[in-house]
Simulated scan of single mutants.
Amino acid sequence: MDDTVDSPLSVAIVEDDDDTRARLAQSVAAHAGLRLVGQYSQGCEAIAGLAESTPDVLLVDLQLPDISGLDVIRQVSARHPTCEVLVISVFGDEEHVLAALEAGARGYLLKGTLTRDIALDIHELRNGGSPLSPIIARQVLKRLCPEPAPRAHDADDALTPRETEILRLIARGFSYAETAALLNISGGTVHTHLKRIYRKLAVHSKTEAIFEADQRKLL
């Protein structure tokens, strides 16, 4: 029988707020699978301490009193590649999030969304995951999968004056027969124009045509 027991993951914390650092330390210390090996309130202090003992996981805030947390992440990623960094910050804007991930962070949690035990996120990180607060995950996906740009409308899509006139009357509530009478054309001609309008606007109904034309400022 194999009696081997996995060693606890070593964790260090870089956080200048005393209360937040204490809560994180308490959460780590309370978990049998984790071992707290360092607590730092300043970035330079953390970098020096990590040179002596490198943890498996580093929890780091971005706003530190001496240097930026981004500088800490960059130096840790370069000097201690086996140490995985999890950001815990109040900053949820795209600039900070992307900068942290580009610097080498493997996860990003907002302080206001820490509703579960941080130990779960630490283990997720070490198991190959990337813990992200929901709003952060949406920002990352939005950046990676931007919305397609609106399709440009070429000259062939432009409505003729007659087509515009017909669509305006239809939009005002006139029937096809009434539109034909007002323009002194046949009902068949109205239908022919409407088919062309549908094709140009890439729609399939009168309601869609009116909406699309309004969006394009054609009415």
Rank of each mutant, 00 (worst) to 15 (best):
G38D: 06
G38F: 06
Q39V: 03
Q39I: 00
Q39F: 03
Q39P: 02
Q39C: 00
Y40D: 05
Y40H: 10
Y40R: 07
Y40T: 02
S41Y: 03
S41V: 05
S41P: 06
S41A: 07
Q42I: 05
Q42T: 10
Q42W: 12
G43Y: 03
G43E: 03
G43T: 06
G43W: 06
C44K: 07
C44V: 04
C44A: 10
C44R: 13
E45G: 13
A46T: 04
A46L: 04
A46G: 04
A46N: 04
I47T: 10
I47H: 06
I47W: 08
I47P: 11
A48E: 15
A48Q: 15
G49L: 05
G49C: 07
G49N: 02
L50F: 07
L50W: 05
A51P: 03
A51F: 02
A51S: 06
A51C: 06
E52N: 09
E52Q: 14
E52L: 11
E52C: 07
S53E: 12
S53C: 10
S53D: 11
S53I: 08
S53K: 12
T54F: 00
T54E: 09
T54Y: 02
T54K: 00
T54D: 05
T54G: 04
P55Y: 01
P55M: 02
P55K: 01
D56F: 11
D56E: 14
V57W: 15
V57N: 15
V57F: 15
L59C: 14
L59E: 03
L59W: 09
L59T: 07
V60R: 01
V60L: 11
D61P: 05
D61Y: 01
D61A: 01
D61M: 00
D61L: 00
L62W: 10
L62E: 11
L62M: 14
L62A: 13
L62G: 14
L62I: 14
Q63E: 11
Q63P: 05
Q63Y: 13
Q63W: 15
Q63A: 14
L64F: 13
L64H: 04
L64K: 00
L64N: 02
L64C: 13
P65L: 01
P65D: 00
P65E: 00
P65V: 01
D66R: 05
D66Q: 08
D66S: 09
D66E: 05
I67E: 04
I67R: 06
I67S: 08
I67M: 13
I67Y: 08
S68P: 14
S68R: 04
S68M: 02
S68W: 00
S68V: 03
G69M: 00
G69R: 02
G69V: 00
G69Y: 00
L70C: 14
D71H: 09
D71A: 12
V72C: 12
V72P: 15
V72A: 11
I73C: 11
I73N: 09
I73M: 12
I73E: 04
R74Y: 11
R74I: 08
Q75W: 07
Q75F: 11
